[in-house]
């Protein structure tokens, strides 16, 4: 996994921002007012961020001829329905199967990572036991091991399970993540009150019961962020599905690669596929975007 939230350990937590009014507070906050240059630069950054996505949509709504048009069209056309029909009919890409497989794999992996990592993170942050420090260091060490580099033995393993070409083979190697455990541990240290755990023990709760009733509610914000990051990483997983699956049963990235490797480049088709593979992530972003931004920034200070 490539995604990471984190930063140097000594950065203290960000203090709450001061009230918006009052020039004295503003000075004390040490924040400069944005100049027109600031707005200009950020608008340029915003346009550069959006442009490739916009261009993707323009080509997806028109025919192949637009890539050669000068000047290029700036508005979407009316060919999206036709392109979509051609995309889902394409024999080489198996796009419908790809979308379904990616949705299943990413969802299962996201839930699994969140569950196992919060369980382990809670134990490492809040439960005293022998070898805890050594185990924590072990978890951090696992983050250096690139799972993707083990594709050759993994493929041999999956063949012996009879899972080659099966979506199960894409899911199982990613069910846990060292990064996830580390993130949950960092968050649990400050978010789960120790007194509450002790109180629950006095009341006779088992440790797993404490996890369910005390730890889960406290960790929920971080779990949502970890789930989102994991879903996105899994959705983008490329090298391993390419190795273990076949064109009849692809993931969405695999399908796109199939379109890309065709002899004559059909840009309208490729860009429509690209649009459909990006859309689920953008929909998730619309609902959880603020949480994600908050999570990335908070993680940067905590980790």
């Amino acid at each position: 996994m490539v995604t990471a939230i984190g930063a140097g350990p000594e950065v203290p937590a960000a203090p709450p921002r001061g009230p918006r009014n009052g020039s004295r507070v503003r000075r004390a906050a040490g924040l400069r007012d944005a100049s027109p240059l600031t707005y200009g630069a950020l608008i340029v950054a915003g346009v550069l961020s959006v442009f490739p996505l916009y261009w993707m949509f323009i080509v997806a709504t028109r025919g192949n001829e637009v890539v050669a048009m000068r000047p290029p069209p700036v508005l979407p056309g009316s060919g999206f329905g036709e392109n979509t029909a051609r995309l889902f009919d394409n024999q080489a890409a198996n796009f419908t199967t790809g979308l379904i497989n990616s949705a299943i794999a990413s969802t299962i992996v996201a839930f699994s990572v969140v569950f196992f990592c919060s369980l382990a993170g809670f134990a490492l942050a809040k439960l005293p036991f022998r070898g805890r420090n050594a185990i924590t260091i072990g978890v951090i060490g696992t983050m250096m091991v690139p799972v993707q580099m083990g594709v050759i033995p993994l493929l041999i393993m999956m063949e012996s399970f009879g899972w080659r070409g099966d979506i199960k083979a894409v899911i199982v190697p990613f069910l846990v993540s060292g990064f996830g455990v580390f993130m949950m541990r960092q968050y649990a240290q400050s978010a789960v009150p120790t007194e509450l755990i002790e109180a629950a023990r006095v009341d006779g709760c088992s440790t797993f019961r404490i996890y369910l009733s005390v730890v889960l509610p406290a960790l929920r914000p971080a779990m949502v962020v970890l789930g989102l990051l994991t879903f996105m990483t899994m959705w983008n997983e490329f090298i391993w599905p390419l190795a273990v699956l076949n064109p009849d049963n692809p993931t969405v990235q695999f399908s796109i690669n199939q379109l890309n490797q065709a002899y004559s480049r059909d840009y309208a088709l490729m860009f429509t596929g690209a649009t459909f593979s990006t859309l689920p992530l953008l929909i998730v972003f619309v609902f959880f975007g603020r949480r994600l931004i908050g999570g990335i920034m908070e993680g940067a200070v905590k980790a």
């Binding site: 490739p52 983008n236 990235q253 796109i256 890309n260 649009t275 990006t278």
Partner: peptide, 8 residues
């Protein structure tokens, strides 16, 4: 999606 953006 990384692959989508690489295509664009």
């Amino acid at each position: 999606s990384v692959a989508a953006i690489a295509i664009v």
